[in-house]
Design a protein around this nucleic acid. Structure first.
Lengths: 333, 333
DNA sequence: TAAAAGAATGCACACGTGCACATCTGTCAT
DNA sequence: ATGACAGATGTGCACGTGTGCATTCTTTTA
């Protein structure tokens, strides 16, 4: 019988085994599985055949040892209760896998600095790191730079040397939010946001307030602890007299709308609400939330591209890409 | 000056460098970073000091080469638009990281078999795989078993040799759903579910119908394509005459409720609705959905435990653990 | 005090692979 | 016919680490 040679009890099958079976040298096996290597078609075929029979698979960890590179990319994320984050992670991992990278997902607890978990990544020769957590790494950035491991921050904080960033167009969102609310007849505006670690939230808030000032409309800042559904729900009663709200993300906006309705308010008749992110729930019939679409598939693609280009050329100055946002008009304004 | 020895331009610092700086052998360095190894406290201290000064980190990939094990665990998931899946992934990865494993996240497209992506994992010496995708791997299971890599399926299909499974208590959920709806006065029951690949969905459906039969209540099966919000929304108009619905998951139940309301129906006055999973949205004020809580943190913990125990002893017969579900009574019934 | 036991350390090999280099073959132009 | 040349193949070293074994040093026991 010519079935699988051995049940290979625990024993791993190596390139040496394949070489012997195919009657070639071990180097030939290596070349057969290396693109653009110098092998004759017949040899390659023999090797592939033997490999299949033995159930051989190239050990990418060992390969990485000699090539000094790995296919791993760290993905640091926090707050997956926010549906936007979940989609973001899905898009990021899909984009990575599509380009033959393996994402190592590290959940960082809300608010906690990413330094702690990221420290682990340096042990695995990751060829890059994507960060989406609220609190970006700071202390470790230098170490990653020294190790030649590029980092790309998505929607995160201030300029860090040799760290690329992808950020959605916060200025456009803030300005357009204010203009849209005013245009719809709102006189007393407010923006709900946590003063916490979320960088884009702060920027949008700032842009919104600036625009309100320019439009000469009264506007208040209503702070919350976290930009979450619960906080949005609770903060509704702090909106007496307000007839136009920019809620810093949809996740919280859903809570805000539920809170307003619970208090007997009508949306958009009494209060106009505008959110940000265009999470799936924003289009749910219960909300029909007017919001800004932040295309996280495009953003993921941008981030991965940035990462790859910096792997190839680590010397370029840090870059800063802005992803456009677009207003999705629904029923809350 | 005694600062960082060299800027280490590209050059990786290895255990050899540390050994030289600490004035010990390379083996001593290895032992200093290996738990329960035979090293004197002084030597360890010298090594750690030198390592810190040089910015040395043990290369876990190389370590895995000699120890023949890696810290990687594959996590195969699909359908992250369903919030339950997102939470599941968060819990699973957290549980893995807590036990010092590194999760490699592989998104499997909806409906697509997991075989395609899982094939990659065998190249990375993963010490285990957790599968949450709808369509579980079938063809590859034997190969993983031969390679000695344990697999644990979460809420997935039928018995596969030497593959452990964790499944929520579908019987209890189906039965209790029927009983609860009848108790609330419903006369015409229905269950909405996709006949597709989701194993637990099928089981719950079956248990529900069985219970209805036992209770001598009329009940219909209303099929959909996918168990998603959109389908739930659309299927509402197919529920003429029905006054009690078991919706196979909350994600779809939210759509169903929105659909019923859009048609002018009252929940729970006209139609009682009961869901499953207790996703965050189920507790949102807009829904207040009565549902079954499936504790995905507990489930993740169970799955990881099962995985680890099988790493240690691969010979045990395949196991099957049932996670209890609990009815969360809210306002839709 | 001598002997035995134990702890600490260094040497050398192994893990599975890629790649530089040397070697060998066959082809084509001169 | 001879040389140059390109392609295919084998040999040997390197990647960074763990660990068995022998050796040395320290402590305990009779």
């Amino acid at each position: 019988m010519s079935g699988p040679e051995k049940p290979s009890r625990g024993r791993k099958v190596t390139s040496f085994d394949v070489a012997r079976r195919a009657g070639v040298s071990r180097a030939a096996v290596s070349r057969a599985f290396t693109p653009n290597a110098s092998v004759s078609p017949e040899t390659r075929e023999k090797v592939v055949k033997a490999a299949k029979e033995l159930g051989y698979r190239v050990n990418y960890l060992a390969r990485g040892l000699t090539t000094r590179r790995s296919d791993f990319v760290g993905v640091v994320a926090a707050g997956m209760d926010n549906p936007f984050r979940a989609l973001q992670i899905e898009q990021i991992t899909k984009s990575l896998v599509r380009r033959n990278f393996r994402p190592i997902l590290l959940p960082a607890d809300q608010g906690e600095s990413a330094d702690h978990v990221m420290d682990q990544l340096l042990h695995y020769n990751v060829s890059g790191v994507l960060v989406t957590s609220d609190a970006p790494p700071t202390a470790l950035c230098a170490e990653f730079a020294a190790a030649g491991v590029p980092i790309v921050l998505i929607n995160k904080a201030d300029t860090i040397p040799s760290v690329d960033r992808v950020v959605s167009d916060t200025n456009a969102a803030g300005k357009l939010a204010a203009a849209t609310l005013v245009e719809a007849g709102a006189k007393q505006l407010a923006v709900v946001a946590a003063p916490g670690p979320s960088y884009t939230a702060r920027c949008r808030l700032q842009a919104f307030m600036g625009a309100c000032y320019a439009l000469d409309v009264e506007a208040r800042v209503i702070p919350v602890e976290h930009n979450s559904y619960r906080e949005g729900l609770a903060v509704a009663e702090a909106l007496k007299g307000v007839d136009g709200v920019f809620c810093i993300n949809d996740y919280m906006a859903c809570g805000l709308i539920d809170g307003l309705r619970r208090l007997g308010g009508k949306v958009p008749d009494d209060v106009r609400v505008i959110g940000h992110d265009d999470i799936p729930q924003a289009s749910w019939a219960a909300y029909e939330l007017t919001t800004f679409r932040q295309p996280c598939d495009v953003q993921a693609e941008q981030a991965v591209s940035l990462l790859i280009s910096r792997m190839d050329d680590p010397t370029t100055a840090e870059r800063f890409e802005v992803t456009p946002v677009s207003l999705v008009r629904r029923a809350t304004v």
